[in-house]
Design a binder for these strands. Structure first.
Lengths: 193, 193
DNA sequence: TTCGTTGGCCAACAAGTGTTGACTTCGCCA
DNA sequence: TGGCGAAGTCAACACTTGTTGGCCAACGAA
C-alpha cells in the first residue's frame, strides 16, 4: 500500500521519504481535493523539497495514482448467508470509510476530475460488480442492481464524510447498518419492482 | 433566477451581459467545479472581458453565490397522500436534476469547497428537513430520516450525473422511481428498524 | 581513498490565476 | 449639441501553480 519495498526489490535509502510523500499526499488529497492539494503543500507536510515529489513520481497525476490505490477488500459473497448480504456489505463499507482517508480523497477527486471519475468507475466495475454477480437472481440485472447499491453507499459517504451534513455525521454505525442494510439487500436480491 | 430585473428595479442596460455571465458561470461550474472554472473562461464564454465579471459580481465567490441559487421547489407534503411521498419525492428530484445544471455545479463544488459544502447543508436544512417534518411519525427522528433520504437522493445524483457510472446513467427515470421510491418512503415513514 | 550513484536542496522558469485601474466608447437627458 | 454616467476594453499587477536543471553532500563498492 505504501511505497515500502516488497520482496525482490532491494530497499532504497529514500524509501522513508517516498512514504512520507505518499502519506502527506493522501491527507492533502482527502482534505482539499485534487486542484487545491498543491505539490508544494504536500512537500512541506513531508518536510522535503517539492522537486523530490517530481523526481519520485514524475508529475502530479503520477503522485495521485501512486498515493490513491483502493482495495475495498469486499467479502466473498459466496461465504455468507445470502439473506444478510446487505447488512454485511454496509458494515464493511462503513469500516473501510471510517479509517481510510484514501476513500474520501478519491471521492473528492472523482467529483471534480475526469481521471478521478474514471478511477471510481473502475473500482465499481472491478470490485462491486463481482459481488453483485454472486448474489443477484437475474444475471441481466446485475449492473443495474450494483449501480443502485453504489448510489446508496456512495450517497452515505458523500453526506457523512464529504458534505458533513450534521445528522448524517451524528448517525451511529449500528444505526446506519440497520437502516441501509435492508435497502442494499433489496437492491441486490429482491425481485425487481 | 437570472439577473433579469423584477418589478421595482429599473432595468439596466447591462442586464443582458449580467445574464450571459451567470449562464456561462453555471455551465463552467457544473462542468469543471469551482477551482477549474476560471473567470477568464467564463468571460470568454459570455463574450466579454474578465474585468466585467469582477465589476458586476465583486469576486469569484460572489459570482458563484450569484450564479448558484437553488430552490428545489419541493412539493408540499401535506397535499399528497402520505403513502407515496417517497415516489413523488424521487420523481421530483429526478426532474430537477435532469434539467438544471446548477445542481450538478453545486454538488461538484460542495465536494471540494468548504463554502460549497455549507451551502448544501443549508439547502438540506431549509428545504428537505421541512418536508420530513410533515411526514415523519416521531419528531425526534426527523433529522435522521431526512439525512437518510438525502444520502440516497444525493447518492443517485453523484453516481448518475457526476461520476457517470454507466449503469447508473443508463437507468430510465421510471426505473429509478420504482427502485428508490420505496427506499425513501421507508426512510421517511416506516417504523425505525 | 576514490569514484560513481543516489538523495536532497535551491533558484528559477513559463504559464495561468484572480484582481485592479486607467482609458475609451456608447447611450441618454438637459 | 454638450455633457455625464454607465458599459466595455486593454494592459498590467502580484501571486501561485507545476515543473526543470544545476549544484552539493552522503553513501557504498572498488
Amino acid at each position: 500500500m505504501t511505497g515500502t519495498p516488497t520482496k525482490n526489490t532491494r530497499p532504497r535509502r529514500s524509501d522513508a521519504t517516498r512514504d512520507a510523500i505518499l502519506v502527506a499526499a493522501r491527507e492533502r488529497f482527502a482534505a482539499d481535493g485534487y486542484e487545491r492539494a498543491t505539490i508544494r503543500a504536500i512537500a512541506k507536510d513531508a518536510s522535503i523539497d517539492p522537486s523530490m515529489v517530481m523526481r519520485y513520481y514524475g508529475n502530479k497525476e503520477g503522485l495521485f495514482a501512486a498515493a490513491v490505490s483502493v482495495d475495498l477488500r469486499l467479502p466473498d459473497a459466496g461465504g455468507l448467508s445470502p439473506q444478510d448480504v446487505g447488512a454485511v456489505l454496509v458494515r464493511h463499507f462503513l469500516d473501510m470509510w471510517e479509517d481510510d482517508e484514501v476513500l474520501t480523497a478519491l471521492l473528492r477527486v472523482g467529483a471534480t476530475n475526469q481521471a478521478g471519475a474514471e478511477r471510481m468507475q473502475g473500482i465499481f466495475r472491478d470490485q462491486l460488480l463481482p459481488v453483485a454477480r454472486q448474489v443477484c437472481p437475474d444475471p441481466e440485472q446485475i449492473p443495474t442492481r450494483a449501480a443502485l447499491t453504489a448510489s446508496q453507499l456512495l450517497g452515505l459517504a458523500l453526506t457523512r464524510y464529504v458534505l458533513r451534513i450534521p445528522p448524517a455525521v451524528a448517525l451511529h454505525p449500528e444505526e446506519i447498518v440497520a437502516w441501509l442494510g435492508p435497502t442494499v439487500q433489496r437492491y441486490l436480491t429482491a425481485p425487481s419492482p
